[in-house]
Write a protein that binds this DNA or RNA. Structure first.
Lengths: 331, 331
DNA sequence: TTGAAAGCGCTAACAT
DNA sequence: ATGTTAGCGCTTTCAA
């Protein structure tokens, strides 16, 4: 597991040149005689030399060719799609992608960010909304490495962001429910301290207000994280509502389970797409968007900064599309 | 983005000690006077010193505190669950997790593995089945870093593996279909060159054989990757079969879509769990297991090796459970 | 076009 | 208990 690996020195000796020359060949620099290059390349092949990246990264001004992605939890399809998009772009830019999950822990987010940026010196970080905002930390870290926020507006930091129209999307979905004649519409969602959640909630309230409907606090259930949380919350609401708006895909699945278990006719609209929703006998209105593209675009912005792009923070707001899935006869 | 960061030297100067002492404090070694430690810690706090991990990793025998996970594609829930499990364990062992997707490319797998093990010198690698086996490469790399295979039996390499009972699981599912009176049962699946696929296919054939049913090659569709591939394949099969066995979750979703679109009564069984299957009006038999645990256990095995565990390769076979979801009236 | 030499930030003998 | 010193493997002036 730990035999000695050939170094540039070894290659240099084998090729009869200096280490500096080997470095030049490896880095594809100009001003190298063809024969020299050939000799070095032969030696590299013979010895099976592979440059030690840790050594390269050590020199000042050098990069680690690594970016990080901080999310709440990879298992959620929303975040795994983002991971997918980010990974593809990272790869195109010859960077590694390291993923870290916060699992809703504020401390974990701090710890991850500090470790990645300050100690491991990744070239940049993609952060998806987590717990509370931490302006001071983000501001401090963005002095060392560029940060791009996904689905969260940076506050107090001059950072790029790729956003969703959370408020508009939620409003549209709730308007849709209202348009279908629903009056008592519940909200089942996550942590309202997360910008994303707050804005979806705002969209919900806005739609109710525009329609002249009261926003009954008893119908708003927040702070839920898991599918089971949502299912339990929905089960309680069922008797007293016409429809439910679910904040995100986990909530949607939980609510769907509750509706199914109770054979309830209550309507549903939700943020995020849900696989197989199209096959359900019950129609569901979904606020959809391309999460993979969200992750990919965020990564592109990050690489632009890594490669020296200056200028004011960029905001790109992705629009959402309301679609109705399911409700067909077969299934 | 690139101001100078405080080094151990700076801390040493500020605390009036030598760099070696600072190193000792940072690494929590014994034989340090309390006052000295306090002084150093004060200086660290004042300067906001954070150790440069690239520099530490450079010394021989040192680790990068990073492990890698190679999968086909993070967006698939099976792999994202594995990623989730691996990440949690990596974190517990204070390691970073870098993820790489092969997207079915043999070359990409080679390139990723070589980059990670040979150049970036990760402490270990978790590999989930991809394209063809590459015994030579795995054998070469396992000299440098431990490798643990997930859901693929290592060939020609003394490596640990965490496996699923692919053949038994598939056989059980097909037996179930047969038990329900289905006779012409199709197979819709991925690349049979992947061990996983080959064994599931073997289980399918075994079940047919045991029941005295012929394995009609026309009913076996392989080499499919996406949901759409599977949907198209299923659409063609529908008219001529009683039931379909789907190789994995992507295939299952595609087949479900086809069945739904054509209002077909054809039965379905599949490997992997599928979210929301329980809410479908059609019953589906699923070969389920705990993918998160699979990833977590693989990571545990890896860390055991990283921490010096010797001994013969370990194999852990996780059993699968056949469950029937869906088929209720409501939905 | 190539080589010599210094040094990135850290750790580990070896001294003391 | 602490300091001195010598690298780890690479890149990069500077000189030739």
């Amino acid at each position: 597991m730990s035999q000695r690996r050939p170094t540039m020195h070894d290659v240099a000796r084998a090729a009869g040149v200096s280490p500096a020359t080997v470095s030049r060949v490896v880095n594809n620099e100009r001003y190298i005689r063809e024969e020299t290059r050939a000799a070095v390349e032969r030696a590299i092949a013979e010895l099976g030399f592979q440059r030690n990246e840790a050594a390269r990264a050590l020199r000042p001004g050098q990069t680690t060719d690594t970016i990080a992605l901080i999310i709440e939890d990879v298992a959620n399809p929303f975040w795994s799609a983002i991971t997918d998009g980010a990974e593809q772009v990272a790869r195109r830019h010859q960077h590694m992608l390291v993923v870290g999950s916060t699992r809703h822990s504020y401390d974990r987010e701090r710890e991850l960010l500090r470790d990645l940026v300050l100690r491991r010196r990744v070239d940049g970080v993609l952060v998806v909304p987590t717990a509370q905002p931490q302006h001071d930390l983000h501001a401090e870290l963005s002095r060392w490495a560029p940060i791009v926020f996904i689905d969260r507006k940076p506050v107090g930091v001059a950072a790029d962001a790729v956003l969703l129209d959370n408020r508009g999307g939620a409003r549209g979905a709730v308007e849709h429910l209202i348009g279908q004649g629903n009056r008592r519409i519940a909200y089942v969602g996550g942590d309202p301290a997360v910008t994303t959640g707050a804005r979806r909630l705002a969209g919900y309230k806005q739609a109710l207000k525009q329609a002249g409907l009261p926003a009954d606090p008893a119908l708003i259930r927040l702070g839920l994280h898991t599918v089971d949380d949502a299912r339990a919350a929905a089960a309680i609401l069922l008797g007293s509502v016409d429809a439910i708006f679910a904040d995100n895909n986990r909530m949607a699945v939980g609510v769907l389970q509750a509706l199914h278990e109770h054979g309830s006719p209550v309507g549903l609209a939700a943020f995020d797409d849900v696989e197989l929703a199209a096959l359900l006998s019950r129609p569901v209105a979904l606020v959809t968007y391309d999460a993979t593209r969200l992750g990919a675009q965020a990564a592109e912005l990050l690489f632009a900064r890594i490669n020296g792009a200056a200028g004011p923070p960029k905001r790109s707001v992705h629009r959402t599309t309301l679609v109705t899935r399911g409700g067909a006869l077969s299934g």
